[in-house]
Structures are given as C-alpha cells and as structure tokens.
Design a protein around this nucleic acid. Structure first.
Lengths: 228, 228
DNA sequence: ATTATCTATAGATCTATAGATAATGC
DNA sequence: ATTATCTATAGATCTATAGATAATGC
C-alpha cells in the first residue's frame, strides 16, 4: 500500500524553496494515475493522492481545480498519439509480415512501460459507458486505430493481393489488432506480475504467427496491367 | 439516473405486511448489481442502493452485513457455471463447425441478457489485480473455460485431424474464444446501446467465419490404423 | 504581486450500529 | 420470539474553500 508514503515530517508553512519539492504538479499526476489504476476514479481520493505526494489536500487545489480535472488532464495527456504515433514512425510497408511484426513489437514495447500499464488499468476500469467522461473512451480510441490501419495498410495490401480478400480490410485489422488490445488489458495492466506480463507477451507472439499464417497470401505472379 | 427511485412515501415503522415488499433481498442484489456496474464498487454506496430499493440504509444491514458482502454474494451467484454450463449441455462434438457455431450462439445468447451485461461491466471494472477480492477474477474464469475447451474439444479434434496441428490446442482455443470474450466486455456491457450490441454480435459472427476458415481442416482420407 | 504551501474548517456523504416498532410464524 | 423495517445517530472520510505564511521572480 503506502510504499513511499513520503516524508512524515510536515513541511513548513509557505511556498517551499526552489529545489526542495520539484515539480509537484507532475508528482500529483503520477500519484493520481497510480491510485486511479488501483482503486478507480471513485475509489481514489484527493486525500490519498495528497498523502502519497507528501502535501496537504489543499495544496493540490493550487494545481488542479477538482479531482475530475486531474483525471481529465491525465487522460488527455496519454490518448491516441501513443497508440497511433507508433504507426506513423515510418516502418516499411512493403512486406506485411515485417511490418506487422514490427508494429506489434513497438506497440507492446510502449504498452509494457509501467506508466502505460497503469493507463491500461484506468482504461479498463473507467471506459465503460457510465463512467467518468472526459477523454478516455476505450472503444473510441481503438476504432480510430482500426480505421486508419484498414484504410492505409490493409486496404492497399489487399488491392495488390498481399492478404486474403474474402474478408474486408476492416475485419482483417480487427483479427490482427484486437487480440493485442485484449492482451494489453488482461496481461499488461497496472498490477500485472512479471509472470503475467511474460504470458501476455508470449500470447501476443503466438497470435501474430497464427494471424500471419491465416491472412497472408503470396503476392500474385504479377499480372501487371501494363502487359495485358 | 433515478429511473424508478421507488415510492417516495416512507414506509411505516415495523416489519411490512406479507405481500407488500416482496423479496427485498433480491431487490437489493439487483439494485447493487446495477450500481456496481455503473459506478464501480467504490462509487456505489449503500445509501444509493437503499434508495433505489426504496428502503433505508439500515434495513439493508438486516440482509447483508456489509457492502462487500453484497458484492461477494452477487459474484458468487454468477460465476463460472454460466460460462461453462453452456458447454456441458450436450452439443454434438462430431463436427467442429457446427459445434463452435452453436457454442458461440449459446454463449452470446447468455451474455446478451441484461443481467449478464451488467456482470460484464462489473467484471471489467473490478477484475484488475487491486480490486475487490472475493469471487470474480476475469482471467481466472476465462482460463478455466479455455483449459477445458482445449482438453475436451480441440485436443481430440486435433488428434483426428479435424483442425490444423501447427498450433497447440490451447492456442487454437485462445484464437477462437478470446475475441468473443473481448467483444463481450466492449460491446455487451451494462450500458451498451442497441447499436453497440448489434455491432458486437456482427463482429462475433465474422470472427467465427474467419476462425473457422483458418483453423478447420478437411478430415484426412481415413488412413485408419486398421488397414495399414 | 504571485505562487505554493500550510492550518483550520464547512458541509456532504458514507458505512455501520443502537434501539424502537410492527408484522409474522410458531 | 423472530424478522424486517424505521428513526436517530456516531464516527469516518471526502471534496473543497478561506485565510495565513513564506519563498519566488519581477
């Protein structure tokens, strides 16, 4: 529980000297992320967050106007870019197998970071319909990634016969990507043990093999339009 | 919010006459399930549960000794049997395609029930590691189903060449079943709209087609051991 | 003057218990 | 006598604000 309940010695009254308690704002965000992941939005209290940081509750209100604002700030700072930015960073699109393996590798590299695992917990807890609005909607985030992968990656591949064409590009993306998202939620969450994480990564690799063996096609013998 | 905030007229003091407020205990459980699904364990209060049922908070304590006990009671009443009982009810194992389609149909029939959708929300919210212990562990429940399907269904099929054998039975089960579980959590939760539910069911069907087209094999031309 | 902290506190809400009361079932 | 409810209340905890105080940066 209170692993590092922060210095018991109460601070003296006014604004602390420069170097003493650096970047309280981000320490509040870190503590909040931790507690939201463990206890959910409703279960985490300003009081616990403050005590984790080592300041009083009222000090928090100098940085954020409410608990919900803390939540929204967190969520807006770790939204889509982290999922899709990976895609943008220019992996070679020519060979599906290489591309998908590299994409999965990068996505999992990001998702396996401690901070991202905390986000996975929060997403899992709070992304249902009745939840804290403001930012994180799990289905929404994933739909976005799915749409782009379908349009920009699987669609073109299908057009040149690199992947099977008896399912839509959208569905191929789904079969590729959603199991990975599922693994993230179940195996790469905030309190996942080393063992769970390894199990998750192993599953992901095996899924990739399975998917590739199902979806790939050898490129057709170049019935190029220029020589019909 | 308070769709049916229950009769505003306060009841009179003592035990109510027989037919008047029937089966309070199960009405408490229903209200609690509803609120746990919407607000999470921490976010749902005894007070709200009581007000939903139309009794005072203290009346609840005549039925359950604590909020946690209500939660545990709920979870113990809707555990594994609902997932696996479906499997037991004797669907013909001879033809994989028929069996798997029927299994999926029954599982989704159960999961699409309003009450089961509420459970999906609660599972999603509270099954992370740091959560309310007692009963529901999502990974645990699914592992159990997976193990049995692998041993009793996919294993035998693989032995007789009905499914591909370049992946373990366990992994084939995973590729078959986990996308369905994922759909349940994301599309068949407590507050899912009609539209989300339909999208989920459509995805499930398409997944089934995809999986069958990947995993099935025509039975081998009966190289039976008796005629070698 | 502004900022980041503290002390003190208001007011809401929450879980749970004690004790009164009225119907039930023996 | 038991059970299911109520009224009343204790005591914890929670969010948030007011106002004092001390360092910072102009």
């Amino acid at each position: 529980m209170n692993e590092e309940m922060a210095s018991k010695i109460p601070r003296r009254r006014g604004r602390p000297p420069k170097g003493e308690a650096p970047d309280t704002r981000s320490r509040i965000l870190d503590a909040a992320l931790d507690l939201f992941a463990r206890d959910g939005f409703a279960g985490a209290s300003i009081r616990k967050i403050a005590s984790e940081v080592g300041i009083t509750e009222s000090a928090i209100y100098a940085h954020f106007e409410s608990k919900r604002k803390i939540y929204e700030t967190l969520m807006s700072e770790a939204g889509p870019p982290l999922v899709l930015g990976v895609l943008e960073s220019g992996v070679d699109l020519a060979d599906p197998e290489t591309f998908l393996r590299e994409l999965a590798r990068r996505v999992f590299e990001a998702w396996d970071e401690p901070r991202m695992r905390l986000f996975a917990s929060v997403l899992m807890r709070e992304s249902g319909a009745g939840s804290v609005s403001g930012g994180a909607n799990l289905v929404g985030l994933i739909e976005e990634a799915r749409r782009r992968l379908a349009e920009e990656v699987f669609g073109p591949w299908m057009a040149v016969g690199l992947v099977r064409d008896d399912f839509s590009p959208e569905h191929l993306v789904w079969e590729f990507f959603h199991p990975l998202a599922y693994i993230r939620l179940l195996y790469l969450h905030g309190q996942a043990t080393e063992e769970e994480r390894r199990a998750g990564l192993r599953l992901a690799e095996e899924h990739l093999d399975f998917f590739l063996s199902c979806a790939l096609r050898d490129p057709e013998p170049q019935t190029s339009t220029s020589e019909q």
